[in-house]
Design a protein around this nucleic acid. Structure first.
Lengths: 294, 294
DNA sequence: CGATCATGATGCCGAAAAGGTATGGATCGC
DNA sequence: GCGATCCATACCTTTTCGGCATCATGATCG
């Protein structure tokens, strides 16, 4: 069977047109080279080299084979290098899922730095609903995800990368709209608009717990998936809400944001499946400031 | 050293994810396959396959290496096939030189048929002055050429592919313009415009010999390289000329073409260097209806 | 024109590598 | 816990490869 070594021998020969010198370049003595070239020609069924007494020359088939061989050898060597690079996380694909809030938090910086440091990795970023993330990471659709503090799945490892306070959002003219700061107790009796528990349970629970700690059960009559929707509904006068401070940056009209005393805090975490074998994951975590040793 | 065989083994393994079945597909027993894969991984310095008790799976580096290996193997096999094809004249390059007259003769048909039959050969066609062709064929710049009957070079082989009569071209109103046919003797005393002997000696000689056979020496006062130029000068009234009949097809204004009795004939030949090793040459000659056995 | 040199091919031997058979060790399912 | 499955390892045989010595051939030079 023809062999990559014979190709290398042939290229050396074609470039020197001299069996002795080619053999020398290959750290080989001349007879094995002669034999390998002869074997190559026999196996191809084609004469590649014309032997003259003074020097060799390439037949037409040899010229063609030289071209092709150079290309094959280059891609062969590159394949070997690429395997190493892929193993080191320098080459490959990395799928990251993130909840919308992350786009206002740590995600952009991490993604920018990672892409600059690992240009060989095709980074795929996809926004998903927070509650879906753990499952998608477990099934391998994402190598990692940015969501609110992990879903308690033991196979998922997670590290905090960002902390965010909640703030109050009310329509203009609301009785709390002019207060410098608001306490939990001030919310009693107000109609709250909150995230649906199926979408972002953490966020929902933080709000509920905040109220309970002040001694009352919150009145949630209206639920929405997206924080933007919640703010919009507040603007329409359908209630008030506690939302992450990132909402403040977006610049909504017809609402007023107010700080909360001892405001509840939600954490953004990067979560990944323990035992994920994608070599590109660890460098990504490092870029996010997370150093796992194991 | 890593080897194309190990790549084939790896691809088989990656496609079955089972050492036993992969070995079977390779007509091999399982232990050598295990060893070769292990050797491959050791030489690459990378783990490609994760061995689990029930089945194997590919590591990230393995996935990448599988992709790359498929591409390498395909180009490797193609290189081997191409060598054979190049040797058979199905693949390569063929440089043909031709004089302008050939473009009105056999060349278009031959080129068309050849390109259709040998799409893998890059056919390069270049017009050159007839007198230069033999030299350019000898030095290898052309594999073959179409010119007037060969320059007498013993290393050049040539075969006729086309015969062409000369005809008379005169300005309208010339004393010979109305004659049904013209004889050589009628040309005596006329100012002839002829090809320069350095450009197309054969053509020039045919004209001169035609006159000498009729017993007079032609009066050549004006010489031009191209037949088109000659016809144009005839139209301008500067003389008359004998030109190949192809000129008739072009449709010049202000000239009249007349048949000659016992018209001189020039031959178009394909010429090539005996011993030209381009495998694409013989099929080209066959396409031109020339069968060399040697 | 013959001796010499250069170059590639061939014969032979030892070393390295590859494949085959038998077997071991780990894991999974019953 | 036992058999079955699957890959790794050990050991042997066969094949292949490379090195050395030598040969054949054609070019070069005195």
């Amino acid at each position: 069977m023809i062999d990559i070594r014979q190709m290398r021998y042939f290229v050396a020969l074609a470039e020197t047109l001299h069996f002795g010198r080619a053999a020398e370049r290959l750290n080989l003595s001349q007879p094995p080279l002669s034999r390998q070239i002869a074997a190559l020609e026999r196996e191809l069924g084609v004469r590649l080299v014309e032997r003259h007494s003074r020097q060799a020359s390439l037949a037409a088939a040899g010229k063609r084979f030289l071209q092709d061989s150079r290309a094959v050898l280059a891609s062969f060597d590159e394949a070997c290098r690429n395997a190493k690079l892929a193993d080191e996380g320098e080459l490959g694909e990395l799928a990251i899922g993130f909840m919308m809030h992350a786009a206002y938090g740590a995600l952009p910086g991490i993604a920018r730095r990672y892409m600059a440091a690992y240009p060989g990795v095709r980074l795929s970023l996809r926004e998903v609903i927070p509650s879906l993330l753990p499952q998608l990471i477990m099934t391998g659709q994402f190598d990692a995800g940015i969501t609110f503090h992990g879903g308690g799945n033991p196979a998922l490892e997670s590290r905090s990368i960002h902390r965010e306070r909640l703030c109050l959002v009310v329509p203009p003219g609301h009785r709390l709209a002019d207060r410098e700061t608001v306490q939990a107790a001030d919310l009693e009796g107000e109609a709250l608009i909150a995230t649906h528990a199926d979408v972002a349970p953490i966020l929902r629970n933080v709000v509920v717990d905040f109220c309970r700690a002040a001694g009352f059960e919150p009145l949630v009559q209206l639920e929405a998936q997206l924080q933007q929707t919640i703010v919009r509904l507040v603007a329409e006068g359908l209630g008030i809400a506690l939302v992450p401070e990132t909402m403040r940056k977006i610049g909504f009209a017809d609402v007023v944001f107010r700080d909360l005393e001892d405001a509840p805090v939600v954490e953004h975490v990067i979560a990944w499946r323990r035992g994920n074998l994608n070599p590109a994951l660890k460098p990504f975590l490092r870029t996010a400031g997370i150093f796992v040793e194991e």
